[in-house]
């Protein structure tokens, strides 16, 4: 315990902040605050990714998690509500029970995980080092992540691009690029919902 590496202190500090932010998300009911805290959570985890040597992931998380998804959530929140209603205690306790049991099971499994930073663990020893060695001779690009992403796992990334395309397509179908999709309104209280498809304007 005499010589604690400075990155470990950074790691622990960032983890503490992550826990505080996640806990606030659980406690708060103002949706605006929750959405902004989600952005903060993403940004903090991006900072931790840098400390964990995952620079590409940190970059993406900062741009996507803290940037785009916060904007999207704010946009959606603006179209819906600004305050979450309180949850009945019964439901809270039930969820707490499920979450505790799941957490206990996962904690029990921690003992089998490799130690933090172990270079000889099964996860780090074989395939990862193979990719680094192969990139030096096959692709000759400095960024191994790009090489694996675009070349070794090119098919995977193709599928992912299609997923993004499908998501864009789905949202255009659901909401419409100009916001006109499905502009019909059902009357939930008392009236027949299925009939109201007729009064499309």
């Amino acid at each position: 315990m005499s010589n604690v590496p400075p990155t470990l202190i950074l790691d622990i500090g960032l983890m503490a902040m992550l826990v505080v932010v996640a806990f606030s998300v659980v406690r708060l009911r103002s949706l605006f605050a929750i959405v902004m805290l989600q952005g903060v959570y993403s940004l903090l985890s991006a900072a931790w990714f840098v400390s964990l040597d995952a620079v590409d992931v940190a970059f993406t998380e900062a741009a996507v998690g803290a940037g785009i998804s916060t904007v999207l959530m704010l946009g959606a929140m603006l179209l819906t509500e600004r305050e979450a209603k309180p949850v009945p205690l019964q439901k809270q306790l039930g969820s707490l029970f499920i979450v505790t049991v799941t957490g206990m099971a996962l904690f029990y499994a921690i003992g089998d995980m490799p130690a933090f930073g172990d270079a000889h663990s099964a996860a780090n020893a074989y395939l990862g080092t193979d990719y680094i060695a192969a990139t030096k001779t096959d692709i000759i690009l400095p960024n191994v992540v790009t090489a694996v992403l675009a070349s070794y796992r090119g098919f995977d990334t193709f599928g992912e691009t299609v997923v993004i395309f499908m998501a864009g397509l789905g949202i255009v179908l659901l909401l419409g690029l100009n916001g006109h999709a499905g502009k019909w309104r059902a009357q939930p209280k008392g009236q027949d919902v299925s009939n109201s498809r007729g009064d499309k304007s």
Binding site: L52, D53, A54, V55, M113, P114, F116, G117, D118, A119, S121, A123, N124, G128, I132, T135, K136, P142, N143, V144, V145
Partner: peptide, 12 residues
Amino acid sequence: LGKVTGGQPPII
């Protein structure tokens, strides 16, 4: 899980 102590980012 992928962190290696004393490692560098995987940019050769």
